[in-house]
Design a binder for these strands. Structure first.
Length: 230
DNA sequence: TACCAGGAGAAAA
DNA sequence: TTTTCTCATGGT
């Protein structure tokens, strides 16, 4: 099955995912940091707290002291680490002169140049950089996450030990460079990954026939523990 | 109780 | 260079 056909199968089964669930590009960037190794429901609590405190802006986050910011994002876990990372992100946006409209960062270079700049920010690794590029800056950069590696290894399309760059290149070589397609595909892979872990009531069967509709994690052919290569 | 969640960076080997 | 450790809350 081609990657395009696979996308169509997942879309037909799970429906459009409407990612990224955020009101502004800056909220996407903040969410990308907060969701690192963390359930999205916990990220939502943290973002809500930032909004309630009127602190969801570059200037506000830079103005907050560490302990106050950490307390606001506490529900997202790793709050001391993520407070530093949010500060670093905001400082970078401020230095780029786009504090008032972070989405304008997209006007400051090619996708590759923007990616390199994002990767220099402490706390922004490959996946977070690609998530920001794709969902906040609207550049078609395919996002690879733990679910991508796990599910596609189960499907026999990956070995499982490839580097992040190799997996990204695999998808980008096989798919047309299309913002909407990359957006939906990654979201669908996350839906599939969650389904593998915990089949939903409305969907007892697996769309890809990978025998996942059983007790949690029991049917995984891969350990849930992340591989170091990702 | 134990395990996992839309990772990244530092430290150790 | 590759592997291991650390960061932490909330749901199942």
């Amino acid at each position: 099955m081609t990657l395009m056909r696979l996308h169509d199968t997942l879309l037909a089964h799970f429906g459009a995912q409407h990612w990224w669930p955020a009101e502004t590009p800056f909220e996407v960037m903040v969410g990308a940091i907060l969701t690192q190794n963390t359930a999205w429901t916990n990220v939502e609590r943290a973002i809500k707290a930032l909004k309630t405190a009127d602190a969801l802006s570059v200037a506000a986050i830079l103005a907050l002291d560490h302990d106050t910011l950490a307390a606001l994002i506490r529900p997202a876990g790793y709050f001391n680490v993520k407070a530093r990372r949010l500060k670093a992100l905001c400082q970078s946006l401020y230095d780029a002169g786009v504090a008032d409209a972070p989405e304008r960062l997209a006007q400051q270079g090619t996708a590759a140049e923007l990616r390199d700049r994002l990767l220099t920010i402490n706390g922004v690794g490959a996946e977070t950089a690609d998530s920001i590029l794709l969902y906040a800056l609207e550049r078609p950069s395919f996002v690879v996450d733990t679910y991508t590696r796990r599910s596609f290894t189960r499907l026999g399309l990956l070995r499982g030990n490839e580097t992040y760059a190799a997996i990204q290149a695999y998808f980008q070589a096989a798919l047309p460079t299309d913002l909407a397609l990359f957006n939906e595909y990654h979201a669908l892979i996350v839906a599939l990954g969650k389904h593998h872990c915990r089949p939903t009531p409305r969907c007892a069967g697996c769309p890809l026939n990978t025998h996942c509709a059983h007790d949690q994690h029991a049917q995984h052919t891969l350990p849930l523990r992340k591989t170091a290569a990702l």
